[in-house]
């Protein structure tokens, strides 16, 4: 499998990373190098092997349904690049 510049462009778009053509051209071979490296895995026989997504050796903890957080708008907005009237502000979204 080899990524074309168009493929890289699509991935950059999905990742919300702006890249010009030159960057795409430079990145494609690097990504292909890494993909070639990870494709070694196809050699491994994984029939009848269950995927392992987490090695935490415990069960999922559950918390009581109590309100013990929030009500901290100043902390929530403290680092916002732009906030107005208690909201985060962003360029207008047109749907």
């Amino acid at each position: 499998m080899s990524l074309t510049r168009d493929d890289v462009k699509k991935v950059a778009r999905l990742s919300r990373l702006r890249m010009d053509d030159q960057q795409l051209d430079e990145l494609a071979p690097k990504l292909n190098g890494i993909l070639g490296f990870i494709e070694q895995l196809s050699e491994v026989d994984t029939d009848n092997v269950e995927p392992l997504s987490n090695v935490a050796r415990s069960t999922l903890p559950l918390r009581d349904d109590v309100i013990n957080d929030g009500e901290c708008r100043d902390a929530v907005l403290a680092n916002a690049p732009e906030s107005e009237e208690g909201f985060f502000a962003v360029p207008k979204v047109v749907e």
Partner: peptide, 20 residues
């Protein structure tokens, strides 16, 4: 949007892509 550096753009997609 909520913290860290932001690079302004024409629209939201611009903002995301340039910021990142």
């Amino acid at each position: 949007i909520r913290y860290g550096q932001r690079v302004e753009g024409e629209d939201l997609t611009d903002l995301y892509e340039l910021t990142r």
